[in-house]
């Protein structure tokens, strides 16, 4: 089955974008504080036809993001691909999460005040590194 984002640009956004704040309609600060550099975002596999049409009226960068994130990607990877500053990328991703095109998974909580990383995760990281 064709993914609904098929045909959206997922190549590198090559030309230097000269209108960063136009893309975000002048917004400079992400409204969502829950998107971090390593929050993984994924385009939902199915959206309503109406929603799919609505995204065509968004900025090209929104569609690029949806195309890029058919597999989970970290916010920072999306920013690198789009060649946009992280905070602007967060604004765009926030739009897409808010309107139900994407979902976001927060990073594993690892260091907290007085807390320590989860042993299972440390073991998995160690075993994975050993194979490098």
């Amino acid at each position: 089955m064709r993914h609904w984002t098929e045909g959206f640009d997922d190549g590198d956004a090559d030309e230097q974008l000269v209108r960063p704040y136009t893309i975000t309609s002048g917004r400079t600060t992400p409204e969502r504080s829950d998107l971090t550099l390593v929050t993984l975002v994924t385009t939902l596999p199915e959206v309503s036809t109406q929603a799919a049409l609505a995204v065509r009226r968004m900025q090209p960068e929104h569609r690029t993001i949806l195309g890029l994130c058919r597999e989970p990607r970290a916010v920072v990877e999306v920013a690198a691909k789009l060649r946009l500053p992280v905070s602007l990328t967060k604004i765009l991703i926030g739009d897409l999460v808010d309107s139900g095109y994407m979902w976001a998974r927060s990073p594993q909580p690892l260091t907290r005040a007085g807390g320590l990383p989860d042993m299972t995760i440390l073991e998995a990281v160690r075993d994975g590194l050993r194979k490098l």
């Binding site: 999460v97 095109y101 979902w103 927060s106 990073p107 690892l110």
Partner: peptide, 16 residues
């Protein structure tokens, strides 16, 4: 709290 990376919760839009 997500800003400080403390919560493992999924965050998502309506469709999630």
């Amino acid at each position: 709290e997500h800003a400080s990376g403390h919560s493992p919760d999924h965050v998502s839009g309506r469709a999630a």
